[in-house]
């Protein structure tokens, strides 16, 4: 039962990975790609890690630390990249007006 659940979560995570990473190739804005990447890299990876946690509960402390650092760092990194990239594009827009 737990085996099915853990494999299900890992497979769900991999589906999230593919769904969220494929838009990277297209021609969209950085911010739009960030939205789909946060689905893939934060939520998908968290699902995979929870699946692993159910599989090997003896190493729960390391995996829990991995889940927490993943959630915090990926979100903060998303904010930092959004801040840096959007400011830059606004600068480019004002330059065009000049």
């Amino acid at each position: 039962m737990i085996d099915i659940l853990s494999y299900g979560l890992i497979i769900l995570g991999i589906i999230f990975w593919f769904w969220g990473t494929l838009p990277l190739i297209g021609n969209r804005s950085v911010l739009f790609k960030l939205h789909s990447l946060s689905v893939a890299d934060t939520l998908g990876s968290m699902a995979i890690l929870v699946g692993l946690l159910l599989k090997v509960p003896s190493e729960w402390s390391l995996l829990l630390l991995a889940i927490i650092t993943l959630a915090i760092w990926n979100t903060v990194l998303g904010y930092v990249i959004a801040y840096c990239a959007s400011d830059n594009s606004q600068l480019a827009n004002t330059n065009k007006h000049d």
């Binding site: 950085v30 990447l37 692993l52 990249i81």
Partner: peptide, 19 residues
């Protein structure tokens, strides 16, 4: 910025693969 986005994705994915 698109390149950096790709690199962040690579970084996360490889470390999950290591786990």
């Amino acid at each position: 910025w698109q390149t950096i986005l790709a690199f962040t994705s690579i970084a996360t994915k490889t470390s999950i693969m290591m786990l």
